[in-house]
Measured scan of single mutants.
Amino acid sequence: MISNAKIARINELAAKAKAGVITEEEKAEQQKLRQEYLK
């Protein structure tokens, strides 16, 4: 099960992506976390 901290990070990265200020490194982290969440 995914931790609350990881869910919070997913939401934080989603907000950054929506604002258009996300880095390529953060995009990769976001994809990794989303895949983990979906498992």
Results as ranks from 00 to 15, higher is better:
residue 18 K to P: 00
residue 30 Q to I: 14
residue 2 I to K: 07
residue 35 Q to R: 12
residue 32 K to A: 11
residue 23 T to I: 01
residue 33 L to D: 01
residue 39 K to T: 15
residue 37 Y to F: 06
residue 13 L to R: 00
residue 3 S to H: 08
residue 26 E to G: 00
residue 6 K to D: 12
residue 4 N to W: 14
residue 21 V to Q: 09
residue 10 I to N: 02
residue 1 M to R: 05
residue 8 A to N: 13
residue 8 A to G: 08
residue 10 I to S: 03
residue 32 K to N: 09
residue 21 V to E: 05
residue 15 A to G: 05
residue 25 E to R: 07
residue 27 K to F: 05
residue 3 S to D: 13
residue 16 K to A: 05
residue 30 Q to H: 15
residue 34 R to N: 12
residue 33 L to N: 01
residue 2 I to R: 04
residue 13 L to Y: 02
residue 5 A to T: 05
residue 32 K to M: 13
residue 17 A to G: 04
residue 27 K to V: 10
residue 15 A to Y: 06
residue 27 K to P: 00
residue 22 I to T: 02
residue 27 K to G: 03
residue 22 I to H: 00
residue 10 I to G: 03
residue 5 A to K: 07
residue 28 A to M: 13
residue 19 A to P: 00
residue 17 A to N: 04
residue 13 L to S: 01
residue 14 A to E: 13
residue 6 K to T: 13
residue 27 K to A: 08
residue 5 A to Y: 09
residue 37 Y to T: 05
residue 33 L to E: 00
residue 31 Q to C: 14
residue 10 I to A: 07
residue 22 I to C: 00
residue 15 A to H: 05
residue 10 I to Y: 15
residue 24 E to C: 07
residue 19 A to I: 06
residue 35 Q to G: 06
residue 9 R to E: 02
residue 16 K to H: 02
residue 24 E to V: 13
residue 9 R to Y: 03
residue 28 A to W: 06
residue 28 A to V: 13
residue 29 E to P: 00
residue 13 L to T: 00
residue 30 Q to V: 12
residue 9 R to G: 01
residue 35 Q to V: 09
residue 30 Q to P: 01
residue 12 E to L: 08
residue 30 Q to A: 15
residue 18 K to W: 06
residue 19 A to C: 11
residue 3 S to M: 12
residue 32 K to D: 13
residue 4 N to L: 14
residue 2 I to S: 10
residue 26 E to W: 00
residue 18 K to Y: 08
residue 23 T to K: 03
residue 3 S to N: 10
residue 11 N to M: 13
residue 7 I to N: 04
residue 33 L to Y: 05
residue 13 L to C: 02
residue 26 E to V: 01
residue 10 I to C: 11
residue 10 I to T: 03
residue 39 K to G: 13
residue 3 S to V: 11
residue 22 I to G: 01
residue 34 R to Y: 15
residue 32 K to L: 14
residue 17 A to R: 07
residue 34 R to G: 04
residue 18 K to C: 00
residue 39 K to C: 13
residue 11 N to V: 10
residue 1 M to H: 11
residue 32 K to W: 10
residue 37 Y to D: 05
residue 35 Q to K: 14
residue 9 R to H: 02
residue 26 E to T: 01
residue 2 I to Y: 07
residue 19 A to F: 07
residue 4 N to A: 15
residue 10 I to E: 03
residue 36 E to N: 04
residue 30 Q to W: 13
residue 28 A to I: 14
residue 30 Q to K: 03
residue 37 Y to P: 04
residue 20 G to F: 03
residue 36 E to P: 03
residue 6 K to Q: 09
residue 35 Q to T: 11
residue 9 R to W: 02
residue 3 S to L: 13
residue 24 E to P: 10
residue 25 E to T: 12
residue 38 L to H: 11
residue 25 E to M: 08
residue 16 K to E: 00
residue 13 L to M: 03
residue 35 Q to W: 09
residue 38 L to S: 10
residue 35 Q to I: 07
residue 14 A to V: 10
residue 26 E to L: 01
residue 5 A to R: 08
residue 20 G to H: 03
residue 36 E to C: 12
residue 23 T to H: 02
residue 22 I to V: 02
residue 21 V to A: 06
residue 16 K to I: 04
residue 3 S to P: 05
residue 21 V to R: 07
residue 5 A to Q: 14
residue 23 T to E: 02
residue 27 K to I: 12
residue 31 Q to W: 08
residue 1 M to K: 14
residue 19 A to D: 07
residue 4 N to T: 13
residue 1 M to D: 10
residue 5 A to N: 11
residue 25 E to Q: 07
residue 24 E to Y: 04
residue 33 L to I: 04
residue 32 K to P: 00
residue 7 I to G: 04
residue 12 E to Q: 11
residue 3 S to K: 07
residue 24 E to G: 06
residue 34 R to F: 14
residue 27 K to L: 09
residue 21 V to C: 09
residue 31 Q to D: 13
residue 2 I to P: 10
residue 9 R to T: 02
residue 33 L to K: 01
residue 37 Y to A: 09
residue 26 E to Q: 02
residue 12 E to K: 04
residue 30 Q to R: 11
residue 12 E to I: 06
residue 33 L to F: 03
residue 16 K to Q: 02
residue 17 A to Y: 07
residue 11 N to I: 09
residue 37 Y to N: 06
residue 4 N to E: 14
residue 13 L to H: 01
residue 3 S to A: 12
residue 31 Q to R: 12
residue 22 I to S: 02
residue 23 T to C: 12
residue 39 K to S: 15
residue 27 K to Y: 10
residue 38 L to F: 10
residue 31 Q to E: 15
residue 28 A to Q: 14
residue 13 L to D: 00
residue 29 E to M: 03
residue 35 Q to D: 15
residue 34 R to M: 15
residue 29 E to D: 02
residue 19 A to Q: 08
residue 7 I to Q: 10
residue 8 A to Y: 09
residue 27 K to Q: 05
residue 4 N to G: 12
residue 9 R to F: 03
residue 38 L to G: 10
residue 29 E to Y: 02
residue 31 Q to K: 14
residue 11 N to C: 15
residue 28 A to F: 07
residue 7 I to S: 07
residue 26 E to M: 00
residue 37 Y to K: 03
residue 31 Q to M: 10
residue 4 N to D: 12
residue 24 E to S: 05
residue 12 E to Y: 09
residue 34 R to E: 15
residue 15 A to M: 07
residue 20 G to M: 04
residue 22 I to K: 00
residue 8 A to K: 14
residue 38 L to Q: 09
residue 4 N to H: 13
residue 7 I to P: 04
residue 33 L to G: 01
residue 21 V to L: 12
residue 30 Q to N: 04
residue 15 A to N: 08
residue 17 A to C: 11
residue 5 A to I: 08
residue 1 M to Q: 12
residue 30 Q to F: 14
residue 36 E to L: 06
residue 12 E to M: 05
residue 29 E to V: 03
residue 4 N to Y: 06
residue 8 A to Q: 15
residue 28 A to Y: 12
residue 14 A to R: 13
residue 25 E to Y: 05
residue 2 I to Q: 06
residue 21 V to M: 05
residue 19 A to L: 12
residue 5 A to L: 08
residue 9 R to M: 03
residue 8 A to V: 12
residue 2 I to W: 12
residue 21 V to T: 14
residue 12 E to N: 04
residue 3 S to E: 09
residue 19 A to K: 15
residue 12 E to F: 06
residue 27 K to M: 11
residue 3 S to T: 12
residue 20 G to I: 00
residue 38 L to Y: 14
residue 1 M to I: 13
residue 38 L to M: 11
residue 39 K to P: 14
residue 9 R to L: 03
residue 34 R to V: 15
residue 35 Q to L: 14
residue 24 E to F: 06
residue 34 R to W: 15
residue 32 K to F: 11
residue 3 S to I: 11
residue 6 K to I: 15
residue 5 A to C: 06
residue 21 V to F: 07
residue 1 M to S: 10
residue 32 K to R: 12
residue 5 A to M: 08
residue 5 A to P: 10
residue 30 Q to S: 07
residue 7 I to V: 08
residue 30 Q to D: 05
residue 22 I to D: 02
residue 6 K to C: 08
residue 31 Q to A: 12
residue 16 K to V: 02
residue 6 K to R: 06
residue 23 T to R: 03
residue 36 E to T: 04
residue 10 I to M: 15
residue 19 A to E: 05
residue 6 K to F: 12
residue 8 A to M: 13
residue 36 E to Y: 08
residue 24 E to N: 12
residue 27 K to T: 06
residue 35 Q to A: 10
residue 25 E to W: 05
residue 25 E to G: 07
residue 38 L to R: 11
residue 29 E to W: 01
residue 18 K to Q: 11
residue 36 E to F: 05
residue 29 E to Q: 03
residue 26 E to I: 01
residue 14 A to Y: 05
residue 31 Q to P: 00
residue 27 K to R: 10
residue 18 K to S: 10
residue 28 A to L: 12
residue 3 S to W: 09
residue 39 K to R: 05
residue 3 S to F: 06
residue 19 A to M: 06
residue 34 R to S: 12
residue 3 S to G: 13
residue 37 Y to E: 07
residue 37 Y to Q: 05
residue 23 T to G: 02
residue 19 A to R: 07
residue 35 Q to Y: 08
residue 15 A to K: 10
residue 11 N to A: 15
residue 29 E to G: 00
residue 20 G to S: 03
residue 17 A to W: 07
residue 17 A to P: 00
residue 6 K to V: 15
residue 21 V to Y: 05
residue 38 L to I: 12
residue 8 A to W: 08
residue 28 A to S: 09
residue 25 E to A: 13
residue 5 A to F: 05
residue 34 R to C: 15
residue 20 G to V: 02
residue 29 E to C: 02
residue 10 I to F: 12
residue 2 I to F: 14
residue 14 A to M: 10
residue 11 N to T: 10
residue 14 A to H: 08
residue 12 E to G: 02
residue 17 A to L: 10
residue 32 K to S: 11
residue 23 T to F: 00
residue 23 T to S: 12
residue 15 A to W: 10
residue 32 K to Q: 10
residue 31 Q to F: 09
residue 26 E to A: 00
residue 22 I to A: 04
residue 34 R to T: 15
residue 13 L to F: 02
residue 17 A to M: 12
residue 20 G to P: 00
residue 8 A to P: 03
residue 33 L to Q: 02
residue 20 G to A: 03
residue 15 A to E: 06
residue 2 I to L: 12
residue 22 I to R: 02
residue 7 I to L: 12
residue 32 K to T: 12
residue 11 N to E: 06
residue 29 E to S: 01
residue 35 Q to N: 09
residue 1 M to A: 12
residue 25 E to L: 14
residue 29 E to F: 02
residue 28 A to P: 00
residue 35 Q to F: 10
residue 9 R to Q: 02
residue 30 Q to E: 08
residue 6 K to P: 05
residue 29 E to N: 01
